[in-house]
Nucleic acid binder design. Structure first.
Lengths: 216, 216
DNA sequence: CGATAAACGGAGTGGACACTCCGCTTTATG
DNA sequence: CATAAAGCGGAGTGTCCACTCCGTTTATCG
């Protein structure tokens, strides 16, 4: 019986060391190259065999999920801090800025959040923990008259989907161009810019279903 | 010697028939499923063999390019009509709306324009023909005081990249949700919404280089 | 130290997919 | 209608990957 939350079954010392080495290598490669790196590259970089990887992680996705644990925790912390801001508009926009800056620095993070394909468990837990903070910010910003009143928290993924696309397209050529996009978009989110929108937001159910799709 | 522009070497009758059948099948499948459909599916749907496909098209990308020829022509026509609009803001926004509606109806079109990977030749030609129309619209809309003055034609791809993402994520679940996104974005493009942007637009060279990247 | 269970390495498997090769079939022509 | 050239079909090839299997190595404990 162990004290750690994840019921670790007391790994042999070499096994623990190797597991850590694997996660470290994967973290580095996935942040730089994205989740597309082959498992072979990861094991080679770690100086270990494939068998070792699959002893510790049932699938590549599980490894990715584990690798991003820290990045997810950091996003939750950013949301927590943002929610503490007096001015909700400032809180919301700084959260967006900081979260997207993390996306630029960590390709794996961006791709996983964009696709919902990889590493589902921890990613989903993170979403659940962040949601109330952002929902609160949105409500407060609307009450303070800074955020347009027809924007809902179900529209938030939109910002990450689209900014993610801008980042992946321009990161290597103009790594800060996404800030221009965010500026444009934020100008459309201000209460005083608002014009009636032609479509309702997604429902929570639609948002959940929008997950699976992707390809190409 | 033939009269058609593309120097067709007088195909045998069955060959021409098969080529057309191939393009027709590919058009249908690519519009519905995207350029990810396998060449095998295409040839099977056409009732022909792989050899036949590769007799007519050197690569899959060349087939895709050929298949989208009509869709490209339609976009050029839309741009031409939009440029004739008296009110440039209306022209610009209707062009965006109509072009994006085509993206929803034709997954292949969307994916090719988003990635710049597939079918380069005709796609590039189309871009070249559309550019002056949109550039003119932007200038006129700015002169008419409707479009924010710091928006440039190099920012246009941004709209298609991001709207493309919205479409691919939500099309199966809420096929019109992209209109909500466009509404939000357009509110940020209005002259009276403008706030100073933190980053310059891409240069033409950066835009060209942004092409190659993608993956995952 | 020696026995034993745990862990390891990496060649091998399977599946996907674009593309090729060549023996056979069909069209065009005199 | 015969013959040659054009065209066709589809099994086969090469490549890329995630993932598995099992003979070998290593930590641990009495």
């Amino acid at each position: 019986m162990s004290l750690t939350a994840t019921t670790t079954k007391a790994l042999r010392s070499d096994a623990r060391r190797n597991r850590e080495q694997l996660v470290a290598s994967a973290r580095e490669l996935i942040a730089r190259e994205g989740p597309g790196v082959s498992v072979e590259e990861i094991t080679q970089h770690a100086g270990l065999g494939m068998g070792t990887l699959y002893r510790h992680f049932a699938t590549k996705d599980e490894l990715i999920d584990a690798v991003l644990e820290d990045a997810f925790a950091e996003l939750v912390e950013l949301a927590r801090q943002a929610a503490a801001e007096e001015d909700a508009w400032t809180g919301l926009t700084t959260f967006l800025e900081q979260a997207l800056a993390r996306h630029v620095a960590n390709r794996g993070l961006k791709d996983v959040l964009a696709s919902r394909e990889h590493g589902r468990r921890r990613a989903e837990a993170m979403r659940t923990r962040i949601r109330p903070f952002l929902r609160g910010l949105i409500e407060r910003a609307q009450a303070q008259g800074t955020l347009r009143s027809d924007f809902t928290s179900e529209d938030l993924p939109l910002l990450f989907w689209t900014a993610g696309r801008v980042i992946e397209t321009t990161a290597t050529v103009a790594p800060d161009y996404w800030r221009r996009y965010l500026g444009l978009l934020l100008d459309g989110l201000r209460a005083d810019a608002a014009t009636a929108l032609p479509q309702p937001p997604l429902t929570r159910a639609q948002l959940a279903r929008a997950a699976g799709r992707h390809e190409s």
